[in-house]
Design a protein around this nucleic acid. Structure first.
Length: 635
DNA sequence: AATTAACCTG
DNA sequence: CAGGTTAATT
């Protein structure tokens, strides 16, 4: 009997990845709805187009209004009572729901009625006119000499009614025409209004953009400020200078940093190009929820620039925010202080962050490089980034932990920054896409059209992505991705030296805390490893295994499943064969020791450790790359 | 005194 | 997985 038979199958079972529940974002879509209502005075319940901007929404709605009206008016037939009733019911719903705010209000005006209802009414009139014409013809026939002498049964009353009808026909036709022309006028007026509003919004957007760029440029120069707290670069060089190092070292450091910055930039460019190339994918909801409830991190109140910059930057994003503390149509929006962008975890006690397995990187994003490095950065290093990120969910089609971080459902805010930002970008792409569909604006005049503006937004965000310090390589903390990498490295080395760790986590700025944290990680890994070994060894003994050579560790055995579940939970990494051998050796060591009764000695495991620590193999070079996760897991 | 690993606990 | 403790090592 071998180990795989010796295990209680109930001990371990595959855990499905946990469902991520995204908040429906009710309030946000309400905001949008109200906005849109106010904008075009239509009561029709508009399903917020997922991930579109207000402008694209407006455009879209006006388009459907203009085009959909004609198509929606189907010819009336006697048998259409059902559909008529259905649409009337729908109309009632729309009315009741829309007038809920002010009870007693009727549906404002025909102008504001849903197009399909209006069409229904028109077709009804049309039907009556038709019927009248037919009856008119019949009546004319009946007045002609009847050879059979069978006049149609006509009561005096019928004659009266017919006279009325006879008169009514032209009236109806006239009113129909009037209605149509009135409607045309109304539509034209509505279009004018929409256009005005759109232009107005474009103006606002332009102004806000200008504001933004002012702020942006100023913060940019602030970032280059030699103030040690100004940014990582200066902090780094300051530190190295103070480290009594030769001047050329800092020169080299600068060169290295420049190179890294360049590569980061080019990677971001690649990513952005990828994002652009991809067809827009609708987001799950029009206006995803803010992540504040999940955010366990305190707002950084230490950074003097935080709030001001934050507020100043508020003018930028998918939605034009009226002002720092204003609201949209009476619906309060999160203010600058509400923004809960993840704040840096102090390296000293980064428990929450390090414990999080929340690497939410969509495979399609693969910003490669970046996601592996998007970790937390120190307070001084961080730049508040409210709007472009605001309103994007932690999860979603782009943010789902599809790379498999099924572990804890705590998300690491930082690791998702990039996802969120690219989501933002993609959202803009989506809105651009819609604009392009409905309106053939020439993109050659960016800024002069809504599409151009949207492009501007995208470009701006690309710039932000480029210059966001968080996307640089060097970081001061360990991210969930680093943890994942460390776990995969455990398949090769159980006892990595500090130097080795520095080599393989070159994108992390090492200090005592980081080092000891990494060491602690591997210590924890070992702990789990040895506990499993002892457990399965005892199990084998209990199951009657007599010789160590009966024990084998294969990929389908329970022991391996347990280990794999722990270090490679997403199972997206091919565990090296050597690890199986080492595991088998370890298991046999435990087995033999226990069988020999050595476990009576409190330090009986030490001998085993001594053996196992010699079995480390070389970690592949890829692991030295900060982007190794992407390279390893998606080949 | 500092570092590290194992151990224990939450 | 992190915090804390202990013991061993340098």
């Amino acid at each position: 009997m071998n180990a795989r038979h010796a295990v209680d199958p109930d001990l371990l079972e595959c855990q499905g990845s946990q469902l991520v529940h995204g908040d429906p974002g009710e309030s946000k879509s309400n905001v949008l709805r109200k906005l849109l209502k106010r904008a075009n005075s239509y009561e029709e319940a508009m399903v917020p187009f997922p991930g579109t901007t207000i402008i694209s929404q407006l455009l879209k709605s006006s388009m459907t209004k203009n085009g959909g009206g004609a198509g929606g008016a189907e010819p009336g037939f006697p048998g259409s009572a059902l559909s008529s009733a259905g649409s009337e019911a729908a109309q009632e719903d729309a009315c009741s729901s829309s007038s809920r705010d002010s009870p007693g209000q009727e549906c404002p005006s025909p102008f504001a009625r849903p197009a399909h209802f209006e069409a229904e009414r028109l077709s009804d009139e049309h039907l009556r006119a038709k019927r009248a014409r037919v009856e008119n013809i019949i009546r004319g026939m009946s007045h002609s000499p009847c050879p059979e002498g069978h006049p149609l049964p006509h009561s005096p009353r019928d004659g009266y009614r017919e006279n009325k009808r006879k008169q009514k026909v032209p009236q109806q036709q006239q009113s129909f025409r009037q209605l149509v022309s009135a409607r045309k006028e109304q539509k034209a007026e509505e279009r004018r209004q929409l256009k005005l509003q759109l232009e107005d919004m474009q103006k606002q957007l332009r102004q806000l953009q200008e504001k933004f760029f002012q702020v942006y440029d100023s913060t940019d120069s602030e970032g280059n400020d030699p103030d040690p707290d100004g940014g990582n670069l200066s902090e780094d060089s300051a530190r190295s200078d103070a480290d009594e190092r030769p001047a050329r070292d800092s020169g080299q450091l600068a060169e290295t940093l420049k190179q890294e910055l360049n590569s980061a930039m080019s990677q971001v460019v690649d990513m952005v190009v990828k994002v652009f190339a991809k067809p827009p994918r609708p987001l799950p909801q029009g206006f995803p929820p803010l992540p504040e409830p999940q955010d366990p991190f305190p707002t950084n109140g230490d950074n003097p620039n935080f709030h001001t910059t934050n507020q100043r930057l508020q003018c930028f994003g998918d939605v034009i925010i009226p002002g720092p503390h204003e609201s949209f149509g009476g619906v309060p929006l999160p203010s600058a202080n509400d923004q809960t962008e993840a704040l840096p975890l102090v390296v000293r006690k980064p428990r929450s962050a390090v414990g999080a397995h929340g690497g939410h990187h969509h495979p399609s994003l693969h910003p490669s490089s970046l996601s592996a490095n998007v970790g937390f950065s120190p307070p001084s290093f961080r730049q508040p980034f409210p709007l472009p990120l605001m309103g994007y969910p932690f999860q979603g089609p782009l943010g789902t932990p599809s790379l498999g971080y099924p572990g804890k459902d705590r998300g690491s805010p930082d690791s998702m920054d990039l996802s969120r930002e690219t989501t933002s970008l993609r959202t803009k792409m989506a809105s651009n896409h819609h604009l392009g569909h409905h309106r053939s604006c020439s993109p050659t005049h960016p800024g002069s059209t809504a599409e151009g503006l949207s492009l501007c937004l995208i470009k701006s965000e690309v710039r932000l992505l480029f210059l966001n310090p968080r996307h640089l390589h060097i970081q001061e903390g360990l991210s969930p991705n680093h943890l994942k990498k460390a776990k995969l490295m455990f398949f090769y080395t159980r006892y990595p030296s500090s130097n080795m760790l520095k080599m393989f986590f070159s994108d992390v700025k090492f200090n005592r805390c980081i080092t000891s944290q990494l060491i602690k990680w591997f210590s924890n890994f070992r702990e789990f490893y040895y506990i499993q070994m002892e457990k399965f060894a005892r199990q084998a003994i209990n199951d009657g295994v007599t010789g160590a050579d009966e024990i084998a560790v294969a990929r389908d055995c329970e022991l391996f499943r347990a280990l794999n579940m722990h270090y490679n939970k997403a199972n997206d990494f091919e565990v090296p064969e050597r690890f199986l051998e080492v595991a088998q050796i370890t298991l046999r060591e435990f087995f033999n020791a226990i069988v020999a009764g050595k476990d009576v000695d409190p330090s009986w495991k030490k001998a085993i450790y001594k053996v196992i620590c010699k079995l480390d193999s070389e970690v592949p070079e890829v692991f030295k790359s900060p982007t190794c996760l992407q390279e390893l897991l998606h080949e």
